[in-house]
């Protein structure tokens, strides 16, 4: 998942006894592992939180096309070019399913797009970092998609039916993305000296931003507690970050690359790796629009939308003309 810092109701989680019968029935259904479907009753806060979360995820898929699109025209072989194109195409497809899932909650894709372009809605902080060498295509697949999968796999069991179903499809494709990323890293790490340097440099630059993808610790957050009670968030940020580090550290060792953290160490007692927290000031700067590529990304999306206006209007006008001609003929 590419959703960070999603605000919920901001109030504490109600106990079942405090709920009105309608809400109680809703919560009991979720507790029993049932799914909520678009026409079912749901608390306003559940709807709004989901729109924020699914919307941010969809926007992340759309903006996420840009850092990888940056290398499609420079991919080093026809096969790599095709794989990268297929991956970016999948991301656009994920954006589409997610916007459709959000639409079932009563918000249009156009509205969500306007909120992205105006800066009102956010996308994942990770896509505000530049992709500078071909090894970054490996690092993005391996680390960024790897981190996304950590979040998305549990969300296949999320309480909102359309979201859970979108996630099932998305997860299948994401695991292919991660594998292709790792495959690029293997080639680079086992390649020439220049390639090995590029691979290490990519890991150095993407390691902490990847850890930031899970968001700051939320063990005391009322927003997270509510989202977890609703099963639209399945694990705490810290749990997922730990899981990611535990999975990734041996992979880096296998590649012969060094994770840029001198405190990274296996802790026998905990059964997990100890590791350093990322610089959370940097994270908040990025969320404020001060990421290395924040301005570029928003400019690119706004330019695409503005320059595409005549196309959208033209196709719409033609569809209306066709309809009018058909009606006149009948």
């Amino acid at each position: 998942m590419y959703a960070q810092m999603i605000k919920s109701t901001g109030k504490g989680v109600k106990s079942l006894d405090e709920m009105e019968p309608e809400e109680r029935a809703f919560q009991e259904r979720i507790n029993a592992g049932g799914k909520i479907e678009p026409k079912d009753w749901m608390p306003d806060g559940y709807r709004k939180t989901l729109i924020r979360q699914i919307g941010q995820h969809a926007h992340s898929e759309i903006v996420g096309q840009l850092p990888e699109g940056n290398w499609i025209t420079r991919a080093p072989t026809l096969e790599r070019k095709a794989i990268l194109l297929a991956k970016v195409q999948d991301e656009a497809g994920h954006g589409l399913y997610l916007y459709c899932a959000a639409e079932t909650l009563g918000v249009s894709r156009d509205q969500l797009t306007r909120d992205l372009l105006s800066g009102k809605m956010k996308y994942s902080s990770i896509f505000n970092y530049p992709t500078l060498t071909w090894a970054d295509m490996g690092a993005v697949g391996w680390l960024v998609d790897g981190a996304a999968i950590m979040n998305q796999v549990p969300l296949q069991r999320t309480s909102y039916g359309p979201y859970a179903r979108a996630m099932v499809r998305i997860c299948k494709e994401e695991s292919f993305h991660q594998r292709q990323g790792f495959d690029i890293m293997m080639k680079m790490a086992n390649g020439t000296e220049a390639q090995r340097k590029m691979a290490q440099d990519a890991l150095n630059r993407f390691w902490y931003p990847s850890l930031m993808m899970f968001g700051p610790s939320d063990k005391d957050s009322v927003h997270s507690a509510q989202s977890m009670a609703w099963k639209i968030k399945m694990n705490t940020n810290d749990e997922l970050r730990q899981k990611f580090v535990d999975q990734t550290a041996p992979q880096a060792a296998y590649l012969g690359l060094t994770i840029p953290d001198e405190h990274l160490e296996w802790n026998e007692e905990r059964g997990h790796y100890d590791f350093s927290e990322p610089d959370w000031d940097e994270f908040f700067d990025v969320l404020q629009g001060n990421g290395p590529c924040s301005v570029d990304r928003m400019e690119a999306r706004n330019k695409a939308w503005d320059e595409g206006r005549w196309v959208r209007e033209g196709l719409l006008a033609h569809a209306e003309k066709k309809r009018a001609r058909k009606m006149a003929a009948e």
């Binding site: 096309q65 499609i72 194109l85 297929a86 970016v88 656009a92 589409l96 595409g308």
Partner: peptide, 28 residues
Amino acid sequence: SEWCGVAPVLEEDIALANTALDLIGQTT
């Protein structure tokens, strides 16, 4: 493929990528 990520609508992003993919496959 130069259009990647900047098409007028999402459906066109997907369709353009698809066309580029077919053409690259044929090239091979």
